[in-house]
């Protein structure tokens, strides 16, 4: 464990909590893409199947349980509790455009052709594109509440910190997880234009982020 990975996990946790609290306190999921949240729940489910078979550390196990619980709680709030505030017509990204290539690629490119390994690879590839429906919804509605942009900021920052973690682990222990690194770089690239808007619009404007 190193400071970059720990900071990354904390950012990830903060992002998930920001979103969950926003939905719970505003009792509304307007402007939130339910599809992205479903994809994140699938990412955690397919990645943490080794929760009961592989024990890494108490931290690892606890964080996996927390991420699973919070992501399913978020999906529950969106599709069950506050479903009347869910504007599905704005959440129109075609998930098959993401799932088909990700499933295909995870069968082609993986470390071992075993169910657990293919599912792990699937979750890595899926995570890199899971935010697309949310970013698509923001471009479609042309705006995002500032709390949603804070959520996206921490979510994007988490994987950027993981890249620093991979650089650190490569130089200190020769560790290099090619699938995770390539996918993590792609994922972070998707956030770059958002980061630019976040810094120029939200942090200065202190208001809603309206796309040009």
């Amino acid at each position: 464990m190193n400071i970059f990975r720990l900071a990354g996990d904390v950012c990830h946790l903060v992002a998930i909590i920001i979103l969950l609290l926003k939905i719970w306190r505003s009792r509304s999921c307007a402007g939130i893409s339910g599809k992205s949240q479903v994809l994140f729940a699938i990412v955690f489910t397919t990645r943490y199947l080794d929760l009961f078979t592989v024990f890494i550390s108490p931290y690892n196990t606890i964080m996996k349980v927390v991420f699973l619980a919070l992501s399913y709680a978020t999906v529950y709030l969106i599709y069950m509790r506050f479903r009347n505030t869910f504007n599905s017509e704005n959440d129109s990204f075609r998930l098959e455009f993401l799932l088909v290539p990700v499933i295909g690629l995870s069968f082609l490119e993986n470390y071992a052709f075993t169910p657990l390994e293919i599912l792990w690879t699937f979750s890595i590839f899926l995570e890199s594109v899971a935010i697309m429906p949310q970013l698509f919804m923001i471009t479609k509605t042309g705006e995002a509440e500032s709390i949603t942009t804070h959520y996206l900021f921490f979510l994007g920052l988490y994987r950027a910190l993981y890249i620093a973690n991979w650089v650190w682990r490569y130089h200190t222990e020769g560790f290099f997880d090619q699938i995770a690194v390539v996918s993590g770089v792609v994922q972070t690239i998707f956030y770059i234009d958002f980061f630019y808007l976040y810094v120029t619009k939200v942090l200065r404007g202190r208001g809603k982020m309206t796309l040009p």
Partner: peptide, 10 residues
């Protein structure tokens, strides 16, 4: 490859 052995990252 050893990465496949144990994915120790979240």
């Amino acid at each position: 490859t050893d990465e496949a052995a144990n994915h120790d990252e979240l």
